[in-house]
Design a protein around this nucleic acid. Structure first.
Lengths: 339, 339
DNA sequence: CGTATCTTCCAAACCGGTTCGAATTTATTT
DNA sequence: AAATAAATTCGAACCGGTTTGGAAGATACG
């Protein structure tokens, strides 16, 4: 059932039917009801391809996965995507996911030139993220999850990583810890840089050392968390507390602590950032993990809404948000043992 | 730059240019080269919306995420999706992801009626999966990740869960274990049912008991793995070996074993199914986990290719695959302690 | 009653591709 | 040399919507 057939059934023109369905004012209310009723009865849904061609809008938001890299292997990214799809769905849009095997850049070029999406979504921002420049050069509107320090303005949503780490360090320092390590994600990520800034600042304010030796950046995996923690604990003056950038890092961190014959909480404190994944809950740790919390899924939902706003002509400059994180106190953060 | 402009530049008709680009035989080779060269020079990429409208093909595969449920919260599903996007990309297709908040069924209806996708992809098949019927009723081609026991034929790719569990049990029984528990995912999943069948069969062949009390189905999370294992270990005759359906379940399982003052491997054996997620590696466990392995990402890639084949007219009946799993022996499976 | 203003509807053009049927040119056969 | 076949190319229709520019009829106003 297409528009022409529907119009014929009703004895109306395509124009009138189209307008009735899209809520234009110049159509008789009685006619409109008749049209809506018929559309429902015949299960009429406009062909998206035709609609897109006519309007120039694609009705979808784009996500490009770098083919080689295992970005989606990252469960946090997967969860973000779920939220994004959800948020987009609520605004009547869909997600257009492209995985390019000939380079991420090629993916953006293709989607832009083919006019396949209205807005591009970028996540996992790098400290120096070339993609932003590329997209603005291609004239493609963009919303990012995360933000860079540069002067470029673009719609984004980020969480306050810096403040999260700062508050975690404040808590640990208040408990009496003097050597607080940072087990972080990839160093080239903007979020990692922000954490580092928060860590440096907070330690400085407490008059504590913040040597580079206390920071271990690497992939956000259990394995890296384990190896980094083992290495840090093996130093002559091992840290008594660890701040981890993700639950997976924290998982490895706790395993390393146990392997060294120490107990999380009473011997070594751990605070992790929790993105709210269902598979790895802080309460499931023994002892339960103290966390900084912010739902990555909710962030995805919101970004979908922001992107929809952008399409509908909202002011891009007024479309950014930075979310505060919650510090949730549990048993893995305690005063360091006296000696 | 669109087709008409490109044709004008070349002094050719739209028809010829279109045909040259799409590899039709009835265009002079010299002309074709001229066209291809010009297309490259002007960065011409066909407008996808127009192409879709004209061909009736959408060039995309559909995935519907149940809005309320947290399916993508499942990292395994995320990884599958990454592979799927990859495989689709290699065949020149994209993924169209729809998250419906008014029910999963509505999502399928919408995508089908709007002709938004060429093939629908279904994952996490249920024992009785109504979606297959719905989609075949809607006339939408479908490829599934997983298969049901019923008589319906549809293109699918599945891994041999039954054989995986069977081989795991064989190994454990061979080592001398007499009480082998199964820590499984949601009971309504077809994969869980297959595992159960494999477990029952293998135990029976070894003359061992397979009471319902030795099976714990539930969400595939660390938490369920932990609770289930604790409960099983607390029984009067605790199992000496656990077969886990996922790495997350195994993670909780190992934690529970440690919490009971036992050691994985020497006291209690554990075998898990590994989908190949980068964040949770079996080597990272202490001791390293014995696993049945099959890359869910590779499965996603292949399903993308199968779906492309379906669009190109391959015989649906000949488009199914069941992959064998690898049994990878590591230290978590050992002979039970003598007593 | 003639004219201006609304309201309501429509025919036709357009979005940017694909494809059918026919026309033109070139090669082959008789 | 005429007839036939093959190789190229093109004009026009089509996919299914949206949108522009009127047109017809109803209502209001002077």
């Amino acid at each position: 059932m297409n528009l022409r057939e529907l119009a014929q059934h009703l004895g109306l023109s395509k124009t009138t039917v189209s307008r009735a369905l899209n809520g234009f004012s110049e159509v008789n209310e009685e006619t409109r009801l008749r049209v809506l009723e018929a559309a429902r009865r015949f299960n009429y849904t406009p062909n998206v391809s035709a609609k897109r061609l006519a309007t120039g809008e694609s009705g979808a938001f784009g996500v490009v996965l770098p083919g080689a890299s295992a970005e989606m292997a990252d469960p946090v990214f997967g969860e973000f995507l779920a939220g994004l799809a959800d948020g987009a769905g609520r605004c009547g849009r869909d997600l257009y996911v492209n995985a390019t095997f000939d380079g991420e850049e090629a993916g953006y070029l293709r989607l832009a030139r083919a006019k396949a999406v209205d807005v591009m979504i970028l996540a996992n921002l790098k400290v120096e993220d070339l993609r932003i420049r590329l997209l603005s050069h291609l004239g493609l509107q963009t919303v990012t999850c995360g933000r860079t320090a540069g002067s470029l303005v673009y719609p984004h949503l980020d969480i306050d990583h810096e403040d999260g780490v700062r508050r975690a360090v404040d808590l640990l320092a208040g408990l009496g810890h003097r050597a607080i390590a940072l087990v972080s994600g990839p160093a080239d990520l903007s979020a990692s840089e922000q954490r580092l800034v928060g860590w440096h600042g907070a330690l400085g304010r407490h008059g504590l050392a913040s040597e580079a030796g206390l920071v271990a950046a690497g992939p956000a995996t259990e394995g890296h968390g384990y190896r980094a923690t083992r290495a840090l604990l093996a130093s002559p003056t091992p840290p008594t507390a660890f701040v981890c950038a993700s639950m997976f890092l924290a998982s490895g961190c706790c395993r390393a602590i146990a392997d060294c014959g120490l107990r999380v909480g009473s011997d070594v404190s751990v605070i992790a950032h929790d993105d709210g994944l269902a598979t790895v809950r802080p309460e499931a740790f023994e002892p339960a993990l103290t966390t900084t919390f912010s739902s990555i899924r909710a962030a995805g939902v919101r970004i979908g809404e922001l992107a929809a706003g952008l399409v509908e002509g909202a002011d891009p400059a007024a479309l950014s948000e930075v979310w505060a994180v919650d510090l949730i106190f549990r048993d893995s953060a305690q005063a360091p043992p006296r000696r």
